[in-house]
């Protein structure tokens, strides 16, 4: 029993579970079998079955989590590579991102409050449309529960990736660039990977939506939440 409580064993386990989940996703190509969701579920089940305390896993997790912020900094590189693309249509892209960002934060806050969620939960849901490292930092900064934010982010991503294309059909916008952009705005990396499957060119627009909404939300969310909470 000793060895499975070792933090290096748990670290290796996390790597292994992630690799297997990615393989399963690749083989089945089934959106609901999202690698993040699968890995999280598998590790929680493992910890429950073996009775290992969460605090033991946290030691291993901390070694991975420390890389989250550098990941966000690294997103500066794709942003730089897309700068020329952004310049060409800077007004429509920026304005639609601002609208999407505000709608995303305000609507989730009001609906969750109206349905009786507690303040902690509402604050955790607010940054749900942006990529996890940013969402977690926003959640932590505003007084939400980062772990709950992660699950909200993952659910938002999976929902958007599965139903996004049908939703766009209903909006009758018929603009492939606009749709790809919105997919990144609404459901971050998971939505972006769905668009990437259709075409890498549109995938770049989804990536743009993902990074712009990430930046905007990080900048405006703390202030907006102070006003409307």
């Amino acid at each position: 029993m000793e060895i499975i409580e070792n933090k290096y064993f748990l670290l290796a386990l996390t790597f292994g579970v992630y690799a297997v989940s990615k393989y399963i996703q690749k083989r089945t190509n089934f959106v609901l079998l999202n690698p993040i969701l699968l890995s999280i579920a598998a590790i929680i089940i493992f910890l429950k079955i073996t009775g290992i305390d969460y605090s033991k896993y946290k030691e291993a997790g901390a070694m991975i989590e420390i890389w989250l912020s550098p990941c966000v900094v690294a997103l500066g590189v794709p942003l730089y590579q897309q700068l020329d693309e952004i310049k060409k249509q800077v007004v429509p892209i920026l304005v639609s991102q601002i609208v999407g960002c505000l709608v995303g934060i305000i609507s989730v806050v009001f609906i969750a409050k109206w349905l009786g969620a507690t303040d902690e939960v509402v604050l955790s849901l607010a940054p749900k449309s942006v990529t996890t490292p940013i969402a977690m930092q926003v959640s932590e900064l505003t007084g939400g529960i980062p772990a709950l934010t992660v699950s909200a982010v993952v659910c938002t991503g999976i929902f958007g990736a599965i139903f996004g294309l049908s939703i766009f059909r209903l909006t009758r916008a018929k603009s492939a660039i606009g749709e790809s952009l919105s997919m990144g705005t609404a459901s971050h990396a998971v939505g972006t990977s769905r668009v990437m499957e259709i075409s890498p060119r549109f995938g770049a627009y989804a990536g743009l939506g993902l990074s712009l909404n990430g930046i905007l939300t990080a900048i405006v969310a703390p202030t907006i939440l102070e006003w409307i909470m």
């Binding site: 996390t14 579970v17 992630y18 993040i36 890995s39 999280i40 590790i43 929680i44 910890l47 969460y54 896993y57 946290k58 291993a60 997790g61 901390a62 991975i64 989590e65 890389w67 989250l68 990941c71 996890t132 490292p133 977690m136 980062p146 772990a147 992660v150 699950s151 993952v154």
Partner: peptide, 8 residues
């Protein structure tokens, strides 16, 4: 990198 925060 999302996995550990998710496990919490």
């Amino acid at each position: 990198f999302f996995i550990p925060p998710g496990v919490s």
